Amino acid sequence: MGTTPLAPGANVAALRKARGWSQARLAKQAVVSVSLLSKVEVGDRALTPAVATALGRAMGLSMAEVLGRAPVARDAETLLAELRSAMRDYDLPGRQPVEEDRITAGLAAAGRCRDGVDVASLLKLLPGLLRDATTHAHTANTAESWAALAEVYSTTYWLAARHRWMDLAELAVARQWWAVEQKPNPLAEAIAIRDRAGTYLNFGDCETGLVLIDRAIAAAQASLDGTERDVAVGILNLRGMTLAGRLEDKRDAVREAGRHIRSALAASEHLAVDLDLHGLTFGPQNTLTHRLATNVDLGKPREALKLTDNLAAALEGLPATRVAPTHINVARAQLDVGDRDGALENLGIAWSAAPQMARIHPMGQEVFRVLAALHRRSNPQLLKLSKLSGIAL
């Protein structure tokens, strides 16, 4: 699988040395300073998505490859092989019919695993659920059954993208789109485009991802109405603001991010609470978490921190998939403004909310590396996070 136990910044050093390149050569080709590259490699500065993209282009790698694929436990290799096999058999339904209730229960179980960031249990569940959903969709041949199959592929994409298994992620979104094409379903199509744009995000091609998002927003506005329209337009704009925040040209980034933020806010105003549809959450709360993250990506940590006055209330009821990354983004913003203690506290909250994320979240790993370099190594909180993340002090 080509996985690495290294944190992203350390992985950059390993990739550079494997090519026999000096820091000066890589920095020149990536158009970053040698000082910044040196600090990233030793853990004095966090490797941001923008810098990872620039370094990847210089080395002919995707951003995901620079960040490093998350390690796979030995007992997970068999499950991954089973999942790949089920994806290959996308047009080969089983001989025995599968009842709709079984698919509904399976999707609910997968949703609980995803929301709780229980990636180990999710990987165990997905191969069988995918085969069941495939059989049911071919047999029932309804818009609902194909949408259910697409949702399984969407969850597969989520799992693969979190681990930076980008070959598997790309295959999942291709199968997801194939499923939604079988019967017209504008909401499922919007979700599929949102996931496909995510692969461009992970490869560092934010410009193309934004083209897909804008096209999908126009389609959703024309084909949907009411709550479904708000949700579709909303989740697409959330992806849009993330893509925009990582554009190389910062003026373009600020302009495009602002456009998607305004559109997401307008859609969220029609919803009193966040809604969970097909494994995705949209509403006022999730819009706030994305605004916070986008401000951090734009290099505006103080603007991001202005959104955290009552963070516990703002995150109440959201799944761990949103709570943990938000606290990681807060920690990154605090690190940028020099609040080391606050950053360490929020990193601890993030990893308590989603322990399994500690081993696979690149920015969480990077913030930890920087804090370990800045704090005394005997700090008990650092020791606790070291055990959670698997990163030695």
Rank of each mutant, 00 (worst) to 15 (best):
T139Y: 06
T53Y: 02
V72M: 13
S33T: 06
S389L: 15
A190M: 06
K306V: 15
D249E: 13
A358W: 05
S145M: 00
I193A: 03
V31M: 09
A392L: 12
I391W: 15
P71S: 02
A86Q: 02
R194T: 09
H163L: 15
S145N: 04
R57W: 12
L210F: 02
L224Y: 04
L288S: 13
Q96F: 04
R74H: 05
T104F: 09
K28E: 10
V233G: 04
Q365L: 10
H260E: 05
A312L: 12
R194N: 11
A197W: 08
L83C: 05
G94Q: 00
R251K: 07
E256T: 12
A304D: 09
E151P: 02
Q176I: 07
T281V: 15
R194M: 14
A304L: 07
A160W: 08
F203W: 14
S35K: 13
I360P: 02
M166P: 14
P319H: 01
P127C: 03
A220D: 12
A70R: 11
A150V: 01
H138V: 00
M166T: 14
H290E: 13
D195P: 04
T104Q: 11
T4G: 07
A172W: 05
K17Q: 09
T289K: 02
I191N: 06
A140P: 02
R131Y: 01
L171E: 09
V66D: 09
G198K: 02
Q29W: 14
R340F: 10
H375N: 08
G20A: 03
I193V: 11
A169F: 05
W177G: 05
A137L: 00
P319E: 02
H361S: 13
L265G: 10
T3M: 07
H278S: 12
S378W: 09
V296M: 08
D44K: 13
I191V: 01
K124F: 06
V119D: 12
G106C: 11
L123Y: 04
I191S: 04
E170D: 15
R369G: 08
R88M: 08
A192Y: 01
K250S: 09
L383M: 15
T321C: 08
L210Y: 02
G20C: 00
L125S: 05
G317S: 10
L187F: 13
I235P: 10
L149M: 01
Q29D: 15
H375Y: 07
A172D: 03
A50L: 10
D75T: 13
D101V: 07
A313T: 15
R74C: 10
A120L: 04
I191Q: 01
L292P: 12
V254D: 13
A264F: 09
V337E: 13
E65K: 08
H290L: 05
L344A: 04
G299P: 03
R196F: 03
L37I: 07
M87H: 06
L277T: 09
W178L: 00
R131K: 07
A174F: 03
A220W: 05
G56V: 14
G128A: 14
R239E: 11
G209S: 01
L125F: 02
Q285V: 09
A81C: 06
R302P: 02
Q356F: 01
V117Y: 05
E151M: 08
Y153L: 01
T48C: 03
A137G: 00
E100I: 03
K300Y: 11
A73K: 12
D252W: 12
R45Q: 11
V119G: 08
T294C: 15
H163K: 13
W146M: 06
R369K: 10
D132Q: 07
H138K: 00
E181C: 05
